[in-house]
């Protein structure tokens, strides 16, 4: 109607049906995911049954058991150690891999494709699943946790750094190529200096994620605070869990702050 009555106005853009289609699909998936039998069981009676007991437990979170603190020091330190070691190993491994995975530093599409596919597969598995499988392979302790974190790190850092390389300036590389440099020389002399800042940035970011991740790896037996979380949760000692959560908060905030300071210096 508008086009005929108001000749000056353009017609309303079409495609509103797409939004309704999207909403329809979302509603359909939601209906299936909530359907009894095949969906997430949204039964309220279990919640009502557990309500008093459960809220009492959660109330315990508000009164941390400070006397538990001495026992948490060693696992907390192990958590931080795992995060640091995994970040360092992951960072060292990531430098050549990111160069392999980026077009500017590796013009060969075959090797680039292989590295990228492998890393996509590595990234598809969450760190805790790695840890669960690795604990069964190499035994309980910090080692499976470190390996799981390294895999997790390499997945993230290589993806982010290789994207940074691709979006970087091709100029220095072309100049070096024009001067007759081999690909290795180009990477070493012309491109590496540009890669350091994003690399350090992402390595620190991965370190922050590692600290968070390493606190729970112990739940599957991979060392650190998670071992304690597992112990206190089986006894429903939520006052002790509360102290552990507080420690995680403090460590995460401190590490994030330190990492932010370093990153600002790097920029």
């Amino acid at each position: 109607m508008s086009a005929a009555e108001y000749p000056g106005l353009p017609a309303k853009p079409g495609g509103r049906w797409k939004i309704w289609l999207a909403i329809g699909i979302i509603a359909a998936i939601t209906a299936v995911t909530l359907a009894p039998g095949i969906g997430v069981d949204f039964s309220l009676d279990a919640i009502l049954r557990n309500w008093r007991n459960g809220t009492e437990k959660i109330g315990q979170l508000l009164v941390p058991d400070w006397s538990f603190f001495p026992r948490t020091i060693a696992p907390l330190w192990e958590t931080i150690q795992m995060a640091i070691i995994a970040s360092v190993i992951g960072a060292i491994v990531s430098v050549p891999l990111s160069m392999w995975a980026a077009r500017l530093t590796n013009p060969n599409p075959v090797t680039r494709g292989i590295v990228r596919t492998l890393l996509n597969i590595v990234r598809a598995v969450p760190d805790l699943l790695y840890a669960a499988v690795l604990v069964a392979m190499v035994g309980v302790g910090a080692l499976p946790g470190i390996i799981a974190l390294v895999l997790f790190n390499v997945g993230i850092v290589v993806k982010l750094v290789s994207e940074a390389i691709e979006s970087g300036d091709p100029g220095p590389g072309e100049a070096a190529r024009a001067a007759g440099a081999t690909q290795t020389q180009i990477n070493r002399a012309a491109l590496l200096p540009d890669i350091w800042p994003p690399f350090i940035n992402q390595a620190l970011y991965a370190f922050e994620l590692n600290v968070r991740a390493s606190t729970v790896l112990g739940l599957v037996g991979a060392g650190g605070l998670g071992l304690l979380i597992d112990a206190v949760r089986t006894f429903y000692r939520y006052d002790q869990l509360s102290l552990i959560i507080l420690e995680i908060l403090v460590v995460v905030v401190l590490i994030d702050w330190a990492s932010a300071v370093i990153r600002k210096r790097v920029k």
């Binding site: 919640i47 729970v216 939520y238």
Partner: peptide, 10 residues
């Protein structure tokens, strides 16, 4: 950890 906290209710 959030899941561990709320599983006492749910």
């Amino acid at each position: 950890v959030i899941a561990i906290v709320i599983l006492s209710v749910t």
